[in-house]
Design a binder for these strands. Structure first.
Lengths: 186, 186
DNA sequence: GTCTATAGGAAGATAGAC
DNA sequence: GTCTATCTTCCTATAGAC
């Protein structure tokens, strides 16, 4: 190892993810992103020729992959509904670091990004998540319409508990949500 | 009316509010704020010598006053719990323009503002709102602990339904929330 | 693949005329 | 009280050495 910084691709995206989540898209300046990753601005541009926009895009795609693999796939998989919900809540705690980390979808849906390039991907992620949750609720015996409503409400509760937790400076709302998660959906 | 722009104080703050809600604190540049208000940047500085920070602060204080007067006071006031909830939901529809406008608390709690000057005020507003809702739930017969949980969950649902509505590009989640509001709290 | 250095422009903020 | 013009700083992005 020479004196120049180096960083693996996965770790790089992870650090950028945390920065975007906590600073927002406009708040995440290249100077701050460089500081967060340990690289210089020019090095970031070497890996992301498209600049900040590309960084956020890859961060979002990375989150999408993680969610599909660790959240949606187990949700769709075998096992009784309660067990699948339990598996998801365990992963949610991980994904949001117990309520300490905001949701990337909420952060990137703010500001001018709405008309921008993230809108379609964000919409798709919400839809996929809600559809997977609704399927579980149907498996548990709810009719289609009720299941859909429960699923949408569940995602809203998740997002809202993170907002309230951040705004109030306490993790309790997110913990309470995780605790009540099975009852909320089924 | 001469050729120079002019604007009443209330209308000025209203336009700034809309701008901050839709652009975020960092996304709301002075150029955009000038465009939103019809004033030049220098004119904004004449009314807000503290710059953008002061604008956001006054916007937040204005929202606080509105909420205290139109949401919390009726919530604490006389009448049976169901009627008070109904009065609030009517005002919520107005406050968030049927789900079209994000919550200022969510927007301003993002980014670097958390450690910043808005944190205390945001926290206080969430606390006051939750306390008022919990009091209604207690009036409706719930015990203190259950009422508190319901109130917190109610605010989370409100915030989350706005997030999901924005992210999915449809007002339905917020509408569904308003519809289910009484049942959620009581 | 990372760095230093810098270009070019937009950001927040101010000066001073009217 | 609003304007035009300008200052300084910061931001995004690039050039080019190693």
């Amino acid at each position: 190892m020479g004196r120049t910084a180096t960083i693996e691709d996965g770790e790089l995206v992870a650090r950028l993810t945390e920065a975007f989540r906590n600073l927002g898209y406009e708040g995440a300046t290249l100077a701050l992103l460089a500081e967060a990753t340990g690289l210089q601005k020019a090095s970031l541009y070497h890996r992301f020729p498209g600049g900040k926009d590309q960084m956020a895009r890859e961060v979002l795609e990375s989150a999408q992959s993680w969610i599909e693999e660790h959240i949606l796939r187990p949700l769709k998989g075998p096992g009784d509904p309660a067990a699948r919900i339990a598996a998801m809540t365990h992963r949610l705690e991980e994904l949001y670091d117990g309520g300490r980390q905001p949701c990337l979808l909420n952060v990137l849906a703010s500001g001018r990004n709405l008309e921008g390039p993230f809108a379609a991907e964000i919409k798709g992620m919400f839809q996929a998540w809600i559809a997977a949750l609704a399927a579980v609720a149907v498996d548990a015996g709810l009719d289609k319409k009720a299941a859909r409503l429960r699923a949408e409400r569940f995602v809203a509760l998740l997002e809202g508990s993170l907002v309230v937790a951040r705004g109030m400076g306490t993790l309790q709302p997110f913990r309470d949500f995780l605790k009540s998660a099975p009852a909320e959906l089924l």
